[in-house]
Amino acid sequence: MSKEKFTLLESTCVPLPFENIDTDQIIPARFLSATSREGFGENLFRDWRYDKSGNKNMEFVMNNPLFGGKILIAGKNFGSGSSREHAVWAIYDYGFRAVVSSFFADIFRNNALNNGLLPVVVPEKFLDKLMDLVSNDPSQKVSIDLENQVISIIPGGDSVQFEINPHKKECLLKGLDDIDYLLSRKDQIIAFETAKTAKDED
């Protein structure tokens, strides 16, 4: 099944200058009881966005009307903890299309790539600079060029290359789906099973 393609993203950013943001913060467990993929954006960072009585915490950046955009910038080790894909669904549903950090937890990164959300790994120095720039100027824009694997501070600012698995890059650029890919390999999978059974019975 085809998905939204990711090619070039140019947007303002939302800065989250905290390290080790875990998936329990991104979407608390009490909101995981839904059985569809939609609607999780409403509860993204729920306990940081709202206080105990359900009032908006105006100190939190996502409640500051000056900040917005499709790029989330976060401190290192983003997405640690639980494997819940709901964290990625929530970030995507809220409107983000890329997350920039110096370091991502493995399962979160896989989940993001499987849902068209691009995790961009940048050097710590670049991340610090970016965090400072966007925190001080909410109108600061950033461009992410997936084809050329470059993230740039625009206009005319620094840019760095980022790494991405070539297979995953292809999937994102073309809006392809790994399940379709695996389904197209059914014959090889069956052949593998047959050979393995024979070997195990040796």
Partner: peptide
Amino acid sequence: FGIGTSEVEMVLATQCILQPKP
């Protein structure tokens, strides 16, 4: 190891997942 829901769907559909070797 733990996986996300898209990967759960992969396993249900094909008994396989696509995974970079750590």
